[in-house]
């Protein structure tokens, strides 16, 4: 296991995974940043959080998504960003599963606020989230010398006398 994790090819294999996850999160946060009021309605529709937490989450979460996406893209604190992505994916999957168990006929609100008629949640909605969760876990565990700013900074530190 240790030998597998230490394989030198991981950072290069993790690079497309990082760029892909970054693209997903940057796309996902765009509409929410521009329209937090719509995102707040999406959160409220899940009927999980108390009213007092709906707006703070609607305001903060898109910025966390933006930060995670940018950090993954430039490779700065990529493992921390991957951990954030994994946490958010786990949270979204649980929320969708709870909504499905309640029989709510709604849109997931993952990318843009759409009506339930256009994009209703189903068991399949969780699958991409679980796929992205696996990618994030891979980056977290295996991207030990991230290609990007982290790697560049490390090389500069090592070159210094």
């Amino acid at each position: 296991m240790k030998r597998c994790l230490a394989w030198r090819g991981h950072p290069w294999l993790a690079l497309p995974a990082r760029v892909y996850l970054a693209a997903v999160f940057l796309l996902a946060c765009w509409h929410k940043l521009a329209h937090p009021e719509s995102f707040a309605v999406d959160i409220a529709t899940y009927q999980i959080l108390p009213l007092a937490l709906v707006n703070p989450l609607a305001i903060a979460l898109p910025w966390v998504e933006l930060a995670a996406g940018l950090l993954l893209l430039v490779g700065f604190r990529a493992r921390a960003a991957a951990l954030l992505v994994a946490g958010m994916m786990l949270m979204f999957s649980v929320a969708i599963a709870l909504a499905l168990s309640k029989g709510l006929d709604m849109s997931c609100g993952c990318f843009a606020s759409q009506g339930a008629a256009e994009d209703p949640i189903s068991g399949l909605t969780v699958l991409p989230d679980l796929g992205w969760l696996l990618l994030a876990v891979y980056v977290f565990l295996c991207d030990h010398t991230p290609v990007g700013l982290d790697g560049w900074l490390a090389r500069r530190r090592e070159e210094k006398p």
Binding site: A68, L71, R77, A80, A81, L83, G87, F140
Partner: peptide, 8 residues
């Protein structure tokens, strides 16, 4: 990484 994630 966890500390960094919380900070971010």
């Amino acid at each position: 990484a966890l500390r960094d994630a919380c900070l971010v």
